[in-house]
Design a protein around this nucleic acid. Structure first.
Lengths: 345, 345
DNA sequence: CTGAAAGCGCTAACAA
DNA sequence: TTGTTAGCGCTTTCAG
């Protein structure tokens, strides 16, 4: 027998195609009894919807937008590139995605931007923005308007029902901790933790995971407090120089932010990268080069292409009601060294 | 303006829908001049095909098969599970995949099986089998019959035009080498390399990569020849016990095959796993447990779900002529430790 | 509240 | 060699 279609379903339930369609799409105007009859028939004949046929008939393009911080760094850059690279494939899936940049540090502006979105013809939004009450509320407003939302790269734990597409930052921190411990061999010394800011929840989670592991090595590793650079190279330099004086001597540096160009240049200038274990986040052209020349030892990263595709799939599945393949959506905490660096950009 | 359809294309080229369809699908019976006219029009109006509509109209299911070795181990098991898990999603894509098991060590049987396939109603095959002349020829016969083929997990470098879905084994070996060097700290000692067999090209590639890195640490690491267990626990035990006598003492073990249950039990019984760095391949329930209890230090793996999906996508794209998104198909050499172990099975 | 019928973009007989 | 036409499985007016 062939796979049952809406026609079969209509026959089985003793109704017309239109009615079948109505209950399939949970539209109003069907007597509860009738609806129930259809639902029964679905079980009986084991009906499964053909979504591509539905999309074809609907003749509708799904409009998605990525809301990204307007601050420019390599990581954001990669995200943009991946979004662009995906769009060709998306044409075949009746999906259009655009990018919107907004000031990451002004919660009100972000919230405003989100509200604008909910007014326009948008079906889904991936939001990358620090968690704030304003943003959280704006997200809830999106939900209320029936617009699909996912939290992208930055978790939004207080915006209920908001799926998170991104790495588990605590696991990432733990992983760095373990690598730091192992890569420093049996050496005794201090470890410097450097970040742009500890304001963000991501940083806090990473630090938490990092400490959980390094605590086990307290007999030989002394981990200082997280030093914040506020994106200021001068400040970064002072911090690193200071740390160099420490007793016992410095054996490792954990670069916690993904924006680490300035900091790495400072470390370079002091000529210590080769002697010290340096571990950071995100695989970018810059960190890639550092892994190759040995000035960084490992990078913890999330596959940006996967991140983008996963966000899109999740949005689409929320919009169409078709549920996703969970195992495909899990974002892995990847360890990259020179030896297992993927070849492409 | 709306996205151009075949109708627009027909109008633009001054031909009928049927003719458009013929050139789109490279079918015979079109005068070259006419075909050219259509091709011109495609450029001009920037036409892109709607594949899901095409599939709908074709009313055809794509039949794919995975040809797997009939030897049972955890890795094969995971592959089967992932194939099963993917099938739900595949229903929406008009794709049916089945699994065929065959004796991996008998090239003639494998080739026979492949030939049978080419007789039946199959559109694409993913083949996991050691490279042999027989298999290579059988694969070429598939190509000749217009059946899509990919080499799955095992490369087929001599079967021309056969795309490989799997990890770069040399890079995997290099990665293990680097981890071994770093995880052993500054210690001096010997490293045991254990494998089921060195017959397979995969093993040779891994070994090659491994040596390339450990050679740099020759001053403190002595790496012995690859010891083959032939799947015999007794033999494994003898080898390991022998290695334990070595001077300088053993500091690490590289388990090169993915079938390592027996070997690990031997290592356990000798009570040395905790003192020695043990690195192996593939994340399975078994290796997962070893990472947790600390008897293994790291595992190099390829995401099996990704592997399966990628093979399917490549086959489908070969069949439909729709080209894939390269960046999505790159299979990564993943490093898994206890800290970054993905949660699910 | 329910149904009949036209059509989404493409394919595949069947005619011409 | 080319065109006409009836669908594929589903949605969506528009009547009833």
């Amino acid at each position: 027998m062939h796979k049952p279609t809406t026609k079969d379903l209509a026959k089985a339930a003793g109704v017309s195609l239109a009615t079948v369609d109505r209950v399939l799409n949970a539209r109003a105007g069907v007597r509860p009894a009738t609806a129930e009859r259809v639902r029964q028939a679905i079980k009986e004949i084991n009906f499964v919807r053909d979504f591509s046929a539905a999309n074809l008939a609907r003749k509708k393009d799904y409009q998605l937008v990525f809301l990204l911080p307007d601050h420019d760094d390599e990581f954001i850059d990669q995200i943009q590139k991946q979004i662009a690279g995906t769009s060709r494939v998306l044409t075949h899936e009746r999906t259009k995605v655009s990018i919107l940049r907004t000031s990451a540090n002004d919660p009100h502006r972000v919230a405003k931007e989100i509200d604008n979105l909910s007014a326009s013809q948008i079906d889904g939004v991936a939001i990358m923005a620090p968690e704030t009450p304003q943003v959280r509320d704006a997200i809830l407003r999106l939900h209320a308007r029936g617009i699909a939302v996912v939290a992208f790269v930055s978790r939004q734990p207080n915006a209920k029902r908001t799926y998170y597409v991104g790495i588990n930052n605590e696991a990432a921190g733990r992983t760095v901790g373990q690598l730091m411990a192992r890569f420093t061999g049996q050496r005794h010394g201090t470890v410097l933790v450097l970040t742009e800011t500890m304001q963000s929840r991501d940083s806090q989670e990473r630090r938490h995971g990092f400490d959980a592991i390094t605590a086990k090595y307290a007999d030989r590793l002394t981990v200082g407090p997280s030093m914040e650079t506020y994106g200021d190279p001068q400040r970064a330099e002072k911090i690193v120089k200071m740390a160099l004086q420490s007793q016992p001597p410095m054996v490792g540096i954990y670069l916690m932010s993904h924006d680490i160009l300035d900091i790495m240049h400072v470390i370079d200038d002091l000529g210590m990268a080769q002697r010290i274990v340096v571990i950071g986040h995100e695989l970018t052209p810059f960190t890639r080069a550092r892994l190759v020349d040995g000035s960084m030892d490992a990078v913890i990263t999330q596959d940006v292409g996967h991140l983008v595709r996963s966000a899109i799939r999740m949005l689409r599945s929320k919009i169409t009601g078709m549920d996703p393949l969970d195992s495909q959506e899990r974002i892995r905490v990847e360890i990259i060294m020179r030896e297992n660096m993927p070849e492409d950009a």
